[in-house]
Nucleic acid binder design. Structure first.
Length: 294
DNA sequence: CTTCTTGTTACTGA
DNA sequence: ATCAGTAACAAGAA
């Protein structure tokens, strides 16, 4: 699922590909993907261009060249943003291909049965917004609404504000467990289920520990591990567990580096004694080693 | 058939 | 206020 490292990989990939290109057409194949006024969306996008692409947590923010407007894009669980240089796609008037054994098999044919939105650029290239589960969205906002959205997020792991002092503040006076705090986007931006488990494992902290029981050293370990795990995952272009692909349609390689997630029943790679356990913590499937995560 | 999967929000009750 | 738990959203896999 796209978490910070995956969304950052997509942002990075799109930066060099779509910024500055004139959008000549937009095809809305699933109208519900657009939050708010659909007409406003189409009028704004057409004959405009993306001037820059930002990210906070798992949220992408496209700045338009004309008009002081922004497009927020959230991939939720199965969203994909795939850019394709060529292809035999006629600009405008896209229709979904029929669902046949052929199209179903080739998930990477574009557009496919999960394509919800297509931006067509003047040079003939296209940006496909696919989403199997239909939870992903785009939303046009002004500067004020953009700032409000950003303000709702906690400290961003790749920013200057991600310091040990600020990280400690997040845990102060709380009673929630570690997993719940790591997943809370209003406290720390961008961590999802996979990396929450990996961070707890790396820090040797059991995810169901109440944060008010953590020692200063344990909080520091979680801080160091958060930064380390997220940067490693970005280096590997994210984790493809199921649907995630980057802006070029390529899978991430970080799945080979996961140490606990999806390893239920396997022997712990670190202590080689414990068997990875999976239980429900903070309402999420959580994998951890009881032997070496205290 | 049932159960599980995950990001986020909304709602309940403690 | 804070927290835990759960339903909802939707479409799949197992």
């Amino acid at each position: 699922m796209p978490e910070l490292p995956e969304v950052e990989t997509i942002r990075n990939g799109l930066q060099n590909k779509v910024v500055g290109k004139k959008i000549s057409a937009v095809d809305v194949l699933f109208p519900k993907i657009i939050q708010g006024d659909k007409k406003e969306f189409e009028i704004l996008v057409k004959n405009n261009f993306f001037e820059d692409i930002f990210r906070i947590g798992k949220l992408l923010i496209f700045k338009f060249g004309k008009g002081d407007k922004y497009l927020l894009a959230h991939l939720k669980m199965t969203g994909q943003l795939i850019y394709q240089e060529d292809g035999n796609i006629v600009v405008g008037g896209h229709k979904l291909p029929p669902v046949t054994a052929e199209t179903k098999k080739d998930f990477y044919d574009l557009p496919n049965k999960y394509t919800r939105l297509i931006f067509s650029f003047a040079d003939g290239s296209n940006l496909f917004f696919n989403d199997l589960r239909k939870f992903a969205y785009v939303k046009v906002v002004d500067k004020q609404e953009r700032d409000a959205a950003v303000a709702g997020y906690g400290i961003e792991p790749l920013s200057k504000e991600f310091t040990l002092v600020n990280f400690k503040k997040v845990f102060e006076g709380k009673k929630k467990n570690v997993k719940a705090v790591l997943l809370d986007q209003s406290l720390i931006a961008g961590i999802g289920n996979i990396y929450a488990d990996e961070i707890c494992f790396d820090a040797k902290v059991c995810p169901d520990r109440s944060v008010n029981s953590l020692s200063t050293q344990e909080i520091k370990a979680l801080y160091v591990s958060s930064e380390k795990i997220i940067k490693e995952a970005i280096k590997n272009k994210g984790t493809t567990f199921r649907d995630y692909v980057d802006a070029s349609g390529q899978k991430g390689k970080h799945i080979d580096f996961l140490k606990v997630y999806n390893r239920k029943g396997e022997k712990c790679l670190r202590c080689k004694k414990g068997i990875i356990k999976k239980s429900k913590i903070a309402g999420r499937g959580t994998s951890y080693c009881e032997e070496c995560q205290k």
